[in-house]
Structure formats: structure tokens, C-alpha cells
């Protein structure tokens, strides 16, 4: 078991938005090695657990390996969506920034994942 952790934001950026009452959070790895690491460790379950406070019913994960990206669809995560939500963030704009704090086990080849010439 790995002892140290690394923040997702070290190896990727993220962007989130709304689709009705669903939120999408896409994670874009800086480098291919980072994508392979995330494909293994950044599971739908892990993202669902991270965002459990939002009350999402379930999370789907879609892979875009050619773009080094994973897209997460958080169903019913926005408290009613843009029109009905009483939250300050009616459209899930903060989710991407938040997810970058997710801690993952430090992989052996972490230096190949950090931002470089992408």
C-alpha cells in the first residue's frame, strides 16, 4: 500500500458544467502516463465518494483515451439544476476545481505525469 498521496491537480486539470440536473466533470491529464494512471485509479466510485455530499444518485465514467481525458456524469447532483437549485453554484461550475484536491496514491512513475511539454 502506498503511504504518500498526490493531489489530482498535480497530474491533471478539470472542467465541470451542467446538463439539466446532472453535472459533468471532465479530468484532463497533462501527459499520457498520467492518463493511464487515472484510468486505473480515478474510478467512478472514487469520484462518487468524493462528491457524496452533493446527493448524486449515481456516477457514470466515460473514457476519451485519445484526448487523455475521463468524463464523469454525476446524475442529479445539482440540487434541481439551474432553475430550481437554491445553491450559489447552480450550474456545477465549482466541481472541477474541487475535484483537483482529490488525493491519490503516489505512483512510481509520477515524474512522467507532471506537467511538461504536453
Amino acid at each position: 500500500m502506498h503511504e504518500k498521496t498526490i493531489a489530482l491537480g498535480e497530474v491533471a486539470t478539470a472542467r465541470s458544467g451542467d446538463k439539466g440536473n446532472h453535472a459533468n466533470v471532465a479530468v484532463i491529464a497533462w501527459r499520457q502516463a498520467g492518463y493511464q494512471f487515472l484510468e486505473e485509479f480515478l474510478t467512478a466510485e472514487r469520484v462518487a465518494e468524493f462528491f457524496q455530499g452533493l446527493g448524486s444518485s449515481h456516477v457514470d465514467r466515460f473514457a476519451l483515451p485519445k484526448l487523455g481525458s475521463l468524463n464523469f456524469l454525476l446524475h442529479d447532483a445539482l440540487g434541481g439544476g439551474a432553475s430550481q437549485s437554491l445553491r450559489i453554484d447552480t450550474q456545477g461550475k465549482l466541481l472541477g476545481t474541487a475535484l483537483l484536491d482529490l488525493q491519490l496514491p503516489v505512483p512510481d512513475n509520477v515524474t512522467e505525469m507532471l506537467r511538461g511539454n504536453s
Binding site: 472542467r15 458544467g17 446538463k19 446532472h22 459533468n24 466515460f62 476519451l64 481525458s69 468524463n71
Partner: peptide
């Protein structure tokens, strides 16, 4: 890429 994956569901 960030904008390609913005507000999408199933990318396929």
C-alpha cells in the same frame, strides 16, 4: 481538450 469535454455526457 478542456472545451471539447465541456458539458457532454457520453462522448461517443
Amino acid at each position: 481538450t478542456e472545451q471539447l469535454v465541456y458539458e457532454i455526457g457520453d462522448p461517443a
